[in-house]
């Protein structure tokens, strides 16, 4: 079964249509990159899939492992296996990273079951070590006063602790220097496996040198206008988005 199937999704916000009959399929275990210029609807897609309420779904379906998640609450979608690494992670003052992740894990347990604190911290520390995060970070308020790079590492830490089946990463590379980019990418690569799929949303090809995708999609004006293998990203890097925009506009004008 495919991990994700987006079928003919049309979405608007305040009367403006952002996603236009958008479709995308990610088979189990694959990493797909979604690229494209700013303002083409990449982040909108991520938020709609995660259940953000600001958007109006005009038509279409989002199937997560065969089950339509549109209209479900964000926590239900999270429990169904979708994790969204935010482009701009929110600050939650007074709530420590450790407590937050623990609460998120606890929310997935059946009623009456509790988390084993010793095992939890052991796992948390191992995963922090892999992301080269200082263990003292666990006591800090979530994202409060973090640098851009720290926030993104913290997103990946949460992602690895919550073990989602579909990881949606929204511009995780923005705000990262090259060292942080490598560390974050290593963390993601460790999570790759036959039962987990990724949708890596990025503006730049750079990230895809480290997280090598199975498929690259180019998005423009609310739709995917071209798909290919990892080479497509490199072609875009050298030719720029204008090349593909022009090609698309020429093609649609001819219809």
């Amino acid at each position: 079964m495919n991990t994700l199937e987006v079928r003919n999704l049309t979405v608007s916000i305040e009367g403006e249509t952002i996603l236009k009959n958008f479709s995308l399929t990610i088979p189990k275990g694959e990493v797909h990159a979604l690229m494209g210029p700013n303002g083409t609807g990449k982040s909108t897609l991520a938020k709609v899939m995660a259940g953000h309420e600001d958007y109006t779904v005009e038509s279409g379906e989002v199937l997560l492992e065969g089950v339509n998640v549109l209209g479900k609450e964000p926590d239900e979608i999270a429990h169904a296996g979708l994790f969204l690494a935010f482009q701009y992670p929110l600050e939650i003052p007074g709530v420590s990273i450790a407590n937050f992740i623990r609460a998120a894990r606890a929310a997935r347990l059946p009623e009456g079951e509790a988390i084993n604190a010793v095992e939890f911290y052991k796992e948390l520390y191992e995963k922090m070590d892999a992301l080269k995060m200082d263990r003292k970070f666990t006591a800090r308020s979530l994202n409060e006063g973090f640098s851009g790079g720290e926030k993104k590492r913290c997103e990946i830490l949460q992602m690895s602790m919550l073990e989602p089946r579909l990881c949606v990463m929204d511009e995780t590379d923005s705000g990262l220097d090259i060292d942080a980019l490598k560390i974050v990418s290593d963390g993601v690569n460790l999570m790759r496996g036959p039962d987990r799929s990724f949708l890596v949303i990025t503006h730049y090809q750079r990230l895809l040198d480290y997280i090598v995708p199975d498929v690259v999609h180019v998005m423009y004006d609310g739709q995917i206008i071209r798909s290919g293998d990892a080479e497509l990203a490199k072609e875009l890097e050298s030719k720029g988005y204008d090349w593909i925009k022009e090609a698309h506009e020429a093609a649609t004008a001819g219809v």
Partner: peptide, 13 residues
């Protein structure tokens, strides 16, 4: 947005 962020991690509202 803060509530959405936390709910995306699996917490109820």
């Amino acid at each position: 947005e803060q509530i959405f962020y936390m709910m995306q991690r699996g917490l109820s509202e």
